[in-house]
Amino acid sequence: MTEISFPIKIHGLSKVYRGKKWQRVAALRQLELTVRSGEIFGFLGPNGAGKSTTIKTLVGLIRPTEGRVTLFGQPAGMAGARQRVGYLPENPAFPDTLTGREFLALVAHSFGLARQQGLMAAERVLDMLDLTTAAGRPIRSYSKGMVQRLGLAQTLLHDPDLYILDEPMSGLDPIGRALVKDIILDLKAKGKTVFFSTHVTADVERVCDRIGVIVGGVLQAQRDVAGLLREGVEGYFCRVSNCPDKVLQPFGYKGRDDVVQELFVPRDRFNDFASQLFRSGGSFDLVEPQRRDIENYFLSLVRQAGEL
């Protein structure tokens, strides 16, 4: 019964689209994924990898060809399963004859919020996303970024436990991106669960607890971001002083005329280098870890999958 408490549980999910001329597109293959409560999960993958397909299955817009998907233990696709979920569609669009405020009232009503409660919640999220001045205008007058922010506001409105965001940062300017990251971190601090997709690795590093990389409809890996960052350190860039050249030479240092001594030390030889340095009377001026970042990790997985 503990499984039931998982905000997202995907088991053996496959999806085949039937395209034009009865063409079949296998968008997802045997996807296994669990998102734990309170986790920020980044769903990383190149364009066309199947991120949106996964997310649309989660919120019941499409049905799986195979497999089981549950939200808090309830089968996805049932209206009730979405009660505790805030969903931001990819490139969202909202009934554009309504004003932002009216649309939020519609959302609040559908989540069963009382009128007064809904109004207050709407003002809170409008303010949070800097939409208060535009809230009385019809959505058709909004810019792309404003619509995206309204989409985020709409997910926050009823204070759900699980956020499913499809490319939340796309279409936003740098200020907007920073805002979204802050919001996500804020949600994490409140113990909420966030599942978001992106194809930009830089979005992932600062905010995610865990990432899953999907390429060609297959989940290639799931990793803990902290561990990945730790493991990713390949060596250190060091600036030392008063060190004899013979200590430095085995690390590929070629004697230079100037006073500044700089070199790269691989991770597994760092301890060795440090003890030699101290023994010879030298000292560190600067040590900088050199990491293979998530971008590289991502690219290597994509390469493995044969998509590059």
Partner: peptide, 14 residues
Amino acid sequence: DRRYCHALLSLPLS
């Protein structure tokens, strides 16, 4: 066509 459905049908509304 304008994909309002994605926003509307993902609400807890059958």
